[in-house]
Design a protein around this nucleic acid. Structure first.
Lengths: 218, 218
DNA sequence: TGTCAACTGTCAGCGGCTGTCATTAGCCTC
DNA sequence: GAGGCTAATGACAGCCGCTGACAGTTGACA
């Protein structure tokens, strides 16, 4: 017989809910502190204290400061990779990536919002750009995502990733456009989701004519 | 009157020479240890001890482990940026970058050789690829170099880097090709300078037809 | 040769991160 | 609904990267 704490429907149960609460609280506290007093200037002890847990517990939820700072970006990136995989097979590589970003924009925003307020996310996004250690970590994660997407594209097009450089190069071009957009957005004044989306769309459109041909073998 | 230790011609003087010796010795010892027992597994104390200096002295020559591990790559990247600046102005952006790499290859190799043996450099290059923390730092430095080159290209072409995304996007494409080459080279079996050069040339040639047009305004 | 500045070693200390072990608290069964 | 199981936490000790401060040493130059 079920206990009172767990509801009949697949409701997570108290333990799980508590874990998630702690996780989200730590995340929010971390980003809040990072964005106000700076990443390097805030210690893990401060974050832990803000949530009233031990420092050790922080490290049980996050591998380190870095992971906490970039956790939300990870959500967005993973979502994007999945979105590319779900694109209809007739779309050319750059087209598929472009559509995955632009059409999935609202879903990504929503997915983020379920963990932290969008405003906090955007502030943290900007902070990454101006914190060398974080920018490095961010670029490495982006590189990983790029590799994953290159494999997806290669599969879609039926080519071998290691033998044919085109999937990786195409994704690199796309990543480059995203990177340029990130940089300009962070430097700009309109720090909103819409502004980022518009910049993204504009840059992608600017590149489209140059390299849009399909290269499927069939 | 000059002392005996400093020769009339601009010879550096004992102090400078000693400094350079210590610097190079630390660098070589660090790379040697990193490549044999792994980056994270070697402590700064071990490096310092291998050269018979205090740990504090190591940090006076290098900002941290990371900088020691990537010092040689930095030499190569700085050299490359200069080479692009020195390209004749009639060359199109991608052409200029391509030629800077391929024609400057031997000079870069030589510049590296003056500090550490090429073999050690190549082994360390491969290590970067398999060490997350180092790969992150490497990508950030590459991103910085890319930004610098984008500005050089923009100046060559007479456009505004922040208003026109094409310089940064073009450089991003080029950087992407280099990144793909790095990855494949590190995964391959022929770990030599020549092998890397050939791979680089092959990949650059494969991209050339796609996006080689000039877009100078004049 | 003596003065000055640069280079170095030593020591103390902070912060990120990990292993270990005892304690607490959700969960499940009888 | 009491007791046993296990996951989650806290407390403590310790390593390592890195920094500031101060004193000692050594090359440079008059």
């Amino acid at each position: 017989m079920k206990t009172v704490t767990a509801t009949p429907e697949g409701r997570p149960g108290l333990r799980e809910r508590k874990k998630r609460r702690t996780h989200d609280a730590l995340l929010r506290a971390a980003l809040e502190l990072f964005t106000t007093k700076g990443y390097e200037a805030t210690t893990v002890d401060e974050i832990a204290e803000a949530v009233d847990v031990s420092q050790r517990t922080f490290f049980r939820y996050f591998a380190g400061k870095e992971e906490a700072a970039l956790a939300v970006q990870d959500i967005a990136q993973d979502y994007f990779a999945e979105a590319v995989r779900d694109r209809p097979p007739h779309e050319a590589p750059l087209e598929a990536m472009r559509n995955a970003v632009l059409e999935g924009w609202d879903d990504i925003t929503e997915a983020v919002e379920q963990v932290v307020p969008v405003d906090l996310y955007l502030r943290s996004y900007r902070m990454v750009e101006s914190t060398p250690a974080l920018l490095a970590a961010h670029l490495r994660r982006s590189d990983e995502t790029a590799e994953a997407i290159a494999r997806i594209i290669a599969e879609r097009e039926g080519v071998d990733v290691d033998a044919d450089p085109r999937p990786r190069v195409t994704v690199a071009l796309f990543s480059g456009v995203i990177r340029v957009t990130e940089r300009l957005w962070a430097l700009g004044e309109d720090l909103t989701m819409d502004a980022m989306r518009d910049l993204m769309a504009a840059h992608l459109d600017a590149v489209r004519p140059s390299l849009a041909e399909k290269w499927r073998t069939g």
